[in-house]
Measured scan of single mutants.
Amino acid sequence: MVVWDEDGFQGRRHEFTAECPSVLELGFETVRSLKVLSGAWVGFEHAGFQGQQYILERGEYPSWDAWGGNTAYPAERLTSFRP
């Protein structure tokens, strides 16, 4: 999975191949867009795999509404991930 700290695949970029309990440890404040290259990941609103969670299947997510636009409580950012 590849993530960016700005919408539209802009800004700082990082690629994950294993779980990440906090993007803050990588110098990111948040993740605002992402691409899942294969498989599925779970993205969490807060560090430590806490808060609202989203199943992220293979594909592109250019902004928060692409992963959470249909929920009652959409998270505008993700800060931890698990494959």
Rank of each mutant, 00 (worst) to 15 (best):
M1L: 15
V2H: 13
V3D: 01
V3A: 07
V3P: 01
V3L: 03
W4Q: 01
W4D: 01
D5T: 14
D5R: 03
D5W: 02
D5S: 14
E6A: 07
D7M: 06
D7I: 14
D7F: 15
D7P: 15
D7C: 11
G8A: 09
G8N: 13
F9N: 02
Q10E: 06
G11K: 00
R13N: 04
H14Q: 10
H14K: 12
H14W: 12
E15T: 15
E15A: 09
E15D: 07
E15G: 04
F16T: 03
F16N: 02
A18C: 05
A18T: 11
A18P: 05
A18D: 11
A18M: 14
A18N: 14
E19M: 08
C20P: 01
C20L: 11
C20E: 05
C20T: 06
C20R: 00
C20Q: 05
P21G: 15
S22N: 15
S22I: 02
S22G: 08
S22Y: 00
S22A: 04
L24F: 12
L24A: 15
L26T: 02
L26Q: 10
F28A: 01
F28T: 06
F28H: 03
F28C: 05
F28M: 11
V31I: 10
V31R: 03
R32E: 00
R32G: 07
R32M: 01
R32V: 01
S33A: 01
L34W: 09
K35E: 03
V36N: 02
L37W: 04
L37K: 05
L37H: 09
L37E: 06
S38D: 15
S38C: 10
S38E: 11
G39N: 05
G39W: 01
A40F: 05
W41G: 02
W41S: 00
W41T: 04
W41P: 00
V42Y: 15
V42T: 08
V42N: 03
G43V: 09
F44C: 05
E45R: 09
H46T: 07
A47W: 03
A47D: 14
G48I: 05
F49Y: 11
Q50W: 05
Q50A: 15
G51W: 04
Q52W: 03
Q52Y: 06
Q52G: 09
Q53E: 07
Q53N: 05
Y54R: 10
Y54C: 14
Y54S: 08
Y54K: 07
I55E: 09
I55Y: 06
I55N: 15
L56A: 02
L56N: 06
L56F: 12
E57W: 03
E57Q: 09
E57S: 11
E57H: 04
R58F: 08
R58N: 13
R58T: 11
R58V: 14
R58W: 07
G59Y: 01
E60A: 12
E60F: 05
E60R: 03
E60M: 06
E60K: 04
E60C: 06
Y61P: 00
Y61C: 01
Y61D: 07
P62Y: 07
S63Y: 05
W64Y: 14
W64E: 07
W64K: 14
D65A: 08
D65K: 09
A66N: 08
A66T: 12
A66S: 13
A66Y: 12
W67I: 15
W67F: 09
G68C: 08
G68I: 13
G69D: 11
N70H: 10
N70W: 08
T71Y: 08
A72Q: 10
Y73P: 11
Y73N: 08
P74Q: 14
P74C: 08
A75W: 13
E76N: 13
E76G: 13
E76Q: 15
E76M: 10
E76F: 10
E76H: 12
R77A: 15
R77K: 10
R77C: 10
L78E: 02
T79K: 15
F81L: 10
